[in-house]
């Protein structure tokens, strides 16, 4: 069943940049917009939903509220959502975070972080990272949120 789950996740992963899938997620440390230190290495043991987005990205605005719901629903079971804004500066990001009432860490991205994750050359892009710190899926574009939620549920069940 685990193997079937892994196969399913691999098939669901984005085709453009598959190289990170099944490999350790690149580690980074950032300070969130609210001043919280975010260390991806410290998230080991949790399932991480790492979402790259921007204020000018329409499909991103659709996904983010769902991610917020999932953080509430699955947070106690081990999900950690981290959003990386790929806006050129944070000026316009803060109002959107407030408006969408996002209650997970939002950090500012940059060229280096984008390249670390294989090049974030289109938004949105979401990485699902398993409890052992490996990239389980790379999901590109406006995602099938039901399918993504099923993947998260599967990953949360893997210990």
């Amino acid at each position: 069943m685990v193997a079937a789950g892994c196969l399913f996740l691999a098939l669901c992963a984005g085709a453009a940049q598959p190289s990170l899938v099944h490999k350790p997620a690149p580690i980074f440390v950032r300070t969130s917009l609210s001043g919280q230190r975010i260390d991806l290495a410290a998230c080991r043991g949790k399932v991480v939903l790492l979402n790259f987005w921007a204020t000018w990205c329409g499909p991103c605005q659709v996904e983010l509220p769902r991610f917020s719901e999932w953080q509430k629903q699955y947070g106690p079971k081990g999900l950690q959502v981290i959003a990386v804004s790929m806006d050129d500066d944070s000026t316009g990001v803060r109002p959107v975070v407030r408006k969408l009432n996002l209650d997970f860490p939002v950090v500012m991205g940059d060229e280096r972080l984008g390249k670390l994750y294989g090049g974030v050359l289109g938004l949105p892009v979401t990485f699902l990272i398993s409890r052992d710190g490996k990239v389980a899926a790379r999901i590109e574009g406006g995602a099938d949120l039901q399918a993504m939620e099923r993947q998260i549920q599967q990953l949360l069940a893997l210990h």
């Binding site: 453009a16 940049q17 060229e111 090049g119 050359l121 289109g122 938004l123 590109e140």
Partner: peptide
Amino acid sequence: ANNFGDDWVAKGYPVDS
């Protein structure tokens, strides 16, 4: 059609950074 990563970079077209 999709994004610069898929429709230019992934096709092996010339890129600078």
